[in-house]
Amino acid sequence: MSSEPILALTNVAKSFGGFQVLTDVNFELKPGEILGLVGPNGSGKTSVINLISGVHQPEAGTIRFDGAEIQRLTPHARVKLGINRSFQVPKCFISMSVRENIEVAAHFSGHDADIPAILEDIGLSGMEAAPAASLTANQQKMLDLGRALATGPKLLLVDEIGAGLNPAELTGIADLLKRIAARGISMIVVEHLMEFLNKLTSRVIVLSAGKIIFEGSLGDASHDPEVVTAFFGGAA
């Protein structure tokens, strides 16, 4: 009751070519909160991100952001409202320099971004002029995150940013996400790595076969029989 949710999904459903990807998804996110989104492969985690960011549109249900329904808006309109995301496979503008990648996002969103600070955050200071194509896969992930930050998001959707990172890098990125959250940016973090998620938040939602099967603390989730079945039980 303390504050209105910044994001609320109500009865959201999505299918592709007759295959039901998400069924009846309901959850809320409070301002400044970090929510973990976990589930086996193909459970619909990335679809949730795609629906909130507008890359896809839901067949049913409403998505409210800051009190207004957004499920019919284009992705760029949602970016301007303050939603952004990173991609599981980073999608940088490879014909541009690092700085241009961030500049273009700042310019079109109309956000007065502090570009040097963003470069500092994502660890690419001093590489402004480097072509994005010359970056390593991990640097491209960071640049992708920088692009999202440049639009001044209030809600950041982070899609499996930890995949393929070593423990030291994981700690670094967890710290960065915590710093970003501390600025009042709400976050949904899709992640396979429970330890990594544990550093960020205690509240998680578990998806299985397109349905929410658990909502609560990460600790309780690991003891929940349905969650255990979803992850380890296969078809049983």
Binding site: P75, H76, V79, C92, F93, I94, S95, M96, A105, T151
Partner: peptide
């Protein structure tokens, strides 16, 4: 140019 590189990322750059 950004759109030509990646239309989805371009949308997410507003």
């Amino acid at each position: 140019k950004a759109m030509a590189d990646d239309p989805v990322s371009a949308e997410m750059s507003a």
